[in-house]
Design a protein around this nucleic acid. Structure first.
Lengths: 227, 227
DNA sequence: ACAAAAGTGTTTACTGTACACCCATGC
DNA sequence: GCATGGGTGTACAGTAAACACTTTTGT
């Protein structure tokens, strides 16, 4: 197992560990990913990538990713889960780095365009450029996982504000799955699941009838068929 | 990102990397996991754990896990996928070891009780003892993932011989999900999916009508609702 | 002939889907 | 008063679930 056998222990400490995070949010009617600028000549100049950083000796991978999110993005993530560990020998041109990738969800409203740190931007998943390292793969994995989990959990809640209208909820599903649902059927189904409660507060935002605001009724992420 | 900043590079090579694998198989009407004996005084004496070992400098995590399966178990696995990376600071009493856990599926028939290496045994998932390290957690994660994936893929094929009867297939689902299905409904549904083909070979194994042998009709793991 | 597992259809209940109009508001 | 998005019900189709007997074999 983890016996050091005949190999010298120092030879086994060949890798640096890192974490990277695919942060998803919905804004302007699109599913977006948070990118940072990467400038590491000679390997990467004027390139983009997802945020990340090293794991320190006294940290778990999760500690590390939360620290980097806090330090580099400065936002609070509501949901994070481990995605996949990338260990290709040459994935980092500077040396062996094994990276544990995470995926995180934040409501669109929590990333204010005006207060975003300059080097951080949101990019529609339909227009992701060639990124540094294997970050395109990480985003791919993240999208896959997000779509799969939306089908049997209620994690979409973390892409929405605490109070939201049924149209906003429907729109979130439509944006991510890229198709539209019938309004009446959608409402019937989602309400029958019993996971929403009507806050009895109304949202007025235009020349039309106000919408009821709902919230998810339990903290846990209920697991069953959604759509 | 992966900049080494002010920290001395050697401080960042604090961890040893390892892989561990949860190997599932079905035998004697039960879902079982492959365990090995672990004897590493003073930390673990006469303990069990799942197979695993170190990642070497020129290997990816997947290379490593395949090598350990080959060397320590000596069987060919038909299906393997990455499960989760465990990075608790104190998960190994001897020092910092970060382990990438995998889960693998093998047909019951491929693990012959008589040729099993002495230190390897199959244990029903209902009777897993306290294991070394965080191996109980790994098995938990594996069971969770296995059940989830059976619902929308055809990976159950890797727990069965290439040719199998519909009763064997049904029984495999029943063992894993711990419930029974109606024979007529099961057959109707599974045949309508169009993923099986009748080999027109019959299996005779007792004082009863012979059963048709089926095989999966495509190599890929079709994704949709199964049961 | 009998025990043991294989194989086969129909009816009923439920769930998903298609579809169109009135409501409350701001301007 | 009109444009805008919010809110509501019903009929039909398709899928899931319940249910029992005949077939083929080995001994």
């Amino acid at each position: 197992m983890k016996q050091v056998n005949n190999t010298k222990p120092k030879d086994l400490h060949f890798a640096v560990l890192a974490t990277d995070v695919v942060v998803f949010t919905i804004s302007d009617g699109e599913l977006k990913v948070l990118l940072t600028e990467i400038n590491l000549p000679p390997h990467y100049v004027n390139t983009f990538g997802i945020p990340g950083g090293l794991i320190l000796p006294n940290e778990t991978a999760e500690d590390s990713v939360l620290r980097h999110i806090q330090n580099k993005i400065g936002i609070k993530v509501d949901y994070i889960e481990q995605l996949y560990t990338f260990s290709s020998v040459d994935r980092d041109p500077r040396g062996r780095v094994v990276s544990v990738a995470y995926f995180a969800l934040v409501p669109g409203s929590s990333i204010d365009k005006n207060t975003l740190i300059e080097k951080i931007s949101l990019r529609s998943i339909k227009k992701i450029p060639q990124l540094a390292y294997d970050h395109n793969q990480m985003i791919e994995k993240g999208i896959e996982r997000l779509k799969a989990k939306l089908g049997y959990t209620t994690i979409i809640r973390y892409l929405l504000p605490t109070k939201f209208t049924l149209s906003e909820l429907q729109s979130a599903y439509e944006i991510i799955f890229g198709k539209s649902y019938d309004k009446r059927n959608f409402r019937k189904k989602i309400l029958e699941l019993g996971i929403l409660k009507n806050t009895n507060i109304q949202k007025r935002d235009g020349a039309h009838r106000p919408a009821d605001l709902y919230s998810f009724s339990a903290d846990f992420n209920k697991i069953f068929e959604i759509l």
